[in-house]
């Protein structure tokens, strides 16, 4: 892992911890972006952590780009020494896989897909060596995920699965992006899953939909009362497969503003996870059911 520093025009510094994705790169990026925030450098206007990189926006009228770059570089050792532990939360997100709405959408944009003859899930299952879409779905929801970035559009989480590299699911994006994606679609591109927070354009494969809103400027749901965006980097997600009846039941609660997602406070320790992934995940998922 070799850190690369560069400028994004005259108002941004871009720091790439690694050109490939890993939890080590994510933790280092999060630690270092936190160190930059804690340093309260005059002239910094935004700090945006991403999967394996982060970006600092600054006002070059207040601090020169050279000086800003030097101050950011000085903080790299702090990221290296930082604890790879997080106090965070695990959230159970209900997913209606193979739902009618993403199915209608994926059929509408079939000519933009690698395999126009099947569905996104059939394609993802085949290229990842699964016998059926159902087996792929099982792999998608059986182990938890880490929110490694929030962005693209309002409050959209990128999620990275907590499994060994050789068990990571990988799918390409659509050949040409769609102009439409249903709100709350559970998508997949590269090694990342995501939830489309709003309706709109998108290039990720579509696997299902969650009835749970994750972005609402009106903040009607209790879990959005603090802020209109639900996710933050470091959150852990467990997908829970649901059927149409449960989808409708949850949707009714959402519409009555009474839906309460299952959430538990947990600690995540990267070294402990690397030493025993199955055991760490089992403990994380247990927490959802003792709370």
């Amino acid at each position: 892992m070799k850190t690369r520093y560069t400028y994004g025009g005259d108002e941004h510094i871009y720091v790439e911890m690694d050109d490939e994705m890993s939890l080590d790169a994510f933790f280092k990026s999060l630690s270092m972006s936190n160190a930059v925030r804690d340093a309260k450098i005059k002239g910094v206007t935004e700090i945006c952590p991403a999967n394996a990189s982060f970006q600092v926006r600054f006002d070059p009228d207040v601090i020169s780009p050279d000086e800003m770059m030097a101050k950011v570089k000085e903080l790299e050792h702090k990221a290296e020494d930082a604890d790879k532990r997080l106090k965070t939360r695990i959230i159970e997100i209900p997913v209606y896989y193979q739902d009618p709405w993403t199915h209608e959408t994926l059929m509408r944009f079939r000519e933009r897909h690698q395999d126009p003859s099947g569905t996104d899930l059939d394609y993802a299952a085949r290229i990842n060596g699964f016998d059926s879409a159902e087996a792929f779905i099982e792999a998608h929801h059986s182990q938890p995920w880490f929110v490694s970035m929030v962005g693209f559009v309002a409050g959209l989480p990128f999620l990275y699965q907590l499994v060994e590299r050789d068990k990571q699911l990988q799918v390409p994006k659509y050949l040409r992006p769609r102009t439409d994606t249903p709100k709350q679609t559970v998508g997949y591109g590269g090694c990342f899953s995501c939830i489309y927070s709003v309706r709109g354009a998108g290039g990720y494969q579509m696997f299902g939909i969650t009835p749970m809103p994750i972005f609402d400027p009106e903040q009607k749901q209790s879990y959005l009362s603090d802020f209109m965006v639900f996710f933050k980097p470091g959150d852990i997600v467990k997908w829970k497969p649901i059927d149409r009846a449960e989808y409708d039941r949850i949707l009714a609660e959402v519409e009555a503003d009474t839906y309460v997602p299952r959430i538990a406070e947990v600690d995540f320790d990267l070294d402990a996870f690397n030493a025993d992934m199955q055991g760490t995940n089992a403990k994380l998922m247990e927490a959802l059911h003792v709370a």
Binding site: G8, M21, P172, F192
Partner: peptide, 21 residues
């Protein structure tokens, strides 16, 4: 292509976009 970036040579592991990039 690095792990997680995607197959196209114009793909990277998703990162932030600078204003004006």
């Amino acid at each position: 292509q690095p792990f997680g970036a995607g197959a196209d040579p114009s793909n990277i592991v998703d990162g932030c976009y600078s204003y004006g990039s």
